[in-house]
Design a protein around this nucleic acid. Structure first.
Lengths: 184, 184
DNA sequence: GGGATCATGTAACAGGTTACATGATTCA
DNA sequence: TGAATCATGTAACCTGTTACATGATCCC
């Protein structure tokens, strides 16, 4: 679990929290469909959604109860718990560790932080930017270290390594610039 | 399978092709270990490596034979086939479709293209850059379309959508700039 | 004697995709 | 008559991660 902290599960928690703390699967699924802002960021098929709801229940972050509907099929109503809310806040307050996680996980965090608590969203974006800047520094020094050779490396390998680091650096810097804007 | 065309399998094909067309699992595994240029780009644990070798054999891209070693355990020697070489070339000549695939899949392509055929590497990087520029155009026009409102959207949703598109655009443009350098 | 190296894997688990099953109801 | 909506899921499959199993030999 080094990598990626279940953005889908937390998105479900976030949706429940926004929607007065309760909802059912079919209803939640609509938020991931065509035209919804979250659909541009994370995809979630019904199968996985119901799977995640059960996982959240096992973790104690939601509870469920059945609501009969008369003619229509009965609904499983999921209710976010105190522990669920605490977990959501914890998750929303932590920036992601890697540049590649910005596109999906960070954007999901940002979406919910913006609706739940504007100040939290600003703090999140600011800290994410600082994380990126630290990463950029590290990449820049790795790049510099390539030119002061310790062992002899094949020149072709060296050129390729430089390309890899330059790509990572440029992506990370671009993210930092964008984050300065997102933190407004 | 909309997404990502098995970079690990193709990396194995590429290693076999570089190494006179043949090799065994343990030997291939070393190329993904500490300090190797590919290790910065793609991770491949032994378990998955052996799994991929069997898949490649089922696809007809490699054949295998056992080489007894006397005292040491016998080796499964894998040999790339004509079909395997053709598949490798096809894969190496196609840029990736999405910006997020540049970091892993495109870099693997670039690594092998550079060692196998310099002209191919330049063509690949150039076409990848053009793909990125087209994507950037599309994102820019989606951004512009946000300001000419068809339906009424919540202003908060609109701001979030703009952020998402701006992030994708900045990442794609950064990749295009880097690719101009990589195509030299 | 203990750990690294050689060499090939299996097992368990986590996450995700695609497709399908059910069965009533409303709408064109 | 047929499609879409409501509502919940299962099944099969693929990719990937972590950890372990085997058993000899080489090196400190």
């Amino acid at each position: 679990m080094s990598n990626g902290e279940m953005p889908a599960e937390h998105a479900i928690l976030g949706l429940l929290d926004l929607d007065e703390g309760a909802g059912h699967g079919y209803d939640l699924a609509r938020h991931f469909g065509e035209g919804e802002p979250l659909a541009d960021v994370i995809r979630l098929e019904p199968g996985m959604l119901y799977h995640h709801l059960k996982k959240l229940a096992r973790a104690g972050w939601v509870t469920s109860s059945i609501e009969p509907q008369g003619i229509r099929p009965p609904r499983q109503i999921y209710q976010i718990t105190g522990a669920g809310r605490a977990e959501l806040r914890r998750w929303l307050s932590e920036p992601v560790a890697h540049t590649r996680e910005i596109r999906l996980e960070f954007l999901v965090k940002l979406y919910f932080a913006r609706r739940l608590d504007r100040a939290l969203a600003l703090r999140l974006a600011t800290e994410q930017r600082e994380t990126c800047l630290r990463l950029a520094d590290s990449l820049a020094s790795q790049l510099a270290a390539l030119d002061t050779p310790g062992e002899t490396v094949a020149p072709d390998d060296l050129a390729f390594r430089r390309l890899v680091l330059e790509l990572r650096l440029s992506q990370t810097r671009a993210a930092a610039v964008w984050l300065a804007d997102a933190a407004k």
